[in-house]
Design a protein around this nucleic acid. Structure first.
Lengths: 203, 203
DNA sequence: GGGGTCATGTAATAGGTTACATGATTCT
DNA sequence: AGAATCATGTAACCTATTACATGACCCC
């Protein structure tokens, strides 16, 4: 049921999380987020960050702590987590971990309308997707292995392991789907092709 | 690389797709989308639909065809697909099927910051998630089976099969993760718990 | 010492969601 | 006939993304 959060953007979660370590100013947050690779898991955008910080302040989850000036550069406002912010962080995390949410991946949208393309086009597209998935998978695998080799505890890579699991499932699904299309006996290919006025694939 | 579409909202894709069948007015689209269950695959929102229709018209993908008045009800403007719209539809679908895109599921965000919760909380949360996943899975399974029994060709349910595949992968991941936490010998539990100043779980 | 890129932030624009409005139909 | 719901659309508000702005630092 996912309650309505005062600040809904997940970037805010990352901000709250980093502020548990120490107060920071927005640019520092921005930098830290990007350097820690959190941008792989949470959509990050420079402009949005300042917005989110404002929202969090307005909601009372963080509070302006000091404003320092360094040379002629613009003022940097340092924010610190409030108690309310600490609660929000834990509550939000609990929800994200404990309750799966209905989401709308792009591939699902594509699949739901795939009948609009003829199977003769779909088959090579699915093959292409299969290859991209394999590449992506390899990239993540390497990233994870390198990080582990560098001594990072596995716990901090668990989101990448999850991604790998999803990619594997998707790859398997694509294979099965291809099979269902191209199997000339029991498959959907003939009916589907005929609907588009084409000869059956795999024939 | 996912080109910039003039209209990016996936609802627009559904609109284009339905207009291939015949011209419709927005409310009819709205109704058809909801009745066909497309709202499960594409985020649907009454207000957004009118916006998207406007955007599509502005972009030249659909064109106002006639304006009819029925009794005292507000005017209904009927839109038809243009040739440009037909091209956009196919091109977009090709992209969605052929090129996986980097996305940001909520669970990934949660996992990436999960260290902020102590393992004593995480374990029951993951168990709860596992149960929810199982329920969701059962619901989809039933929906698919009923539809198949009702004679709907499997092709039109392929997006639900995909969802099932993802759910299974997620369930398996959650199980593995629980194992990694609670295994008292090789697991992350002790270190993690200690970091939070708690006794090790599963002990 | 002039051209890039970094540091830091604001403002403008566009996109999406919620709330509102109002006649028609149906139910009791 | 009044209440509830459907049909249909617009408007207000909030969020998010892009573009812009400017001083500082670094490179050659």
């Amino acid at each position: 049921m996912a309650k309505k959060r005062k600040v809904a953007n997940l970037l805010a979660l990352a901000v709250l999380s980093y502020l548990t370590q120490r107060p920071m100013h927005p640019y520092e947050l921005s930098r830290t987020l990007r350097d820690n690779g959190d941008a792989r898991s949470i959509k990050f955008n420079h402009g949005s960050l300042y917005m989110v910080v404002q929202q969090l302040a307005r909601a009372g989850f963080i509070a302006e702590q000091e404003t320092s000036r360094d040379g002629q550069r613009p003022e940097r406002t340092v924010y610190a987590l409030t108690d309310a912010g600490r609660l929000e962080l834990r509550d939000w995390l609990r929800e994200l971990i404990g309750e799966p949410e209905h989401e709308y991946p792009h591939f699902v949208a594509g699949l739901s309308l795939i009948g609009a393309l003829p199977p003769s086009e779909v088959v090579p597209l699915l093959r292409a997707r299969g290859e991209r998935i394999a590449e992506e998978r390899a990239g993540i695998r390497k990233l994870v292995d390198d990080a582990l080799a560098g001594g990072l505890p596995g716990l901090f890579l668990v989101e990448e392991e999850y991604r790998l699991a999803l990619l594997d499932a998707e790859a398997a699904f694509v294979e099965r789907f291809l099979g269902q299309i191209t199997d000339p006996v029991s498959g959907w290919g003939p009916m589907w092709a005929e609907f588009h006025g084409e000869p059956a694939p795999g024939a």
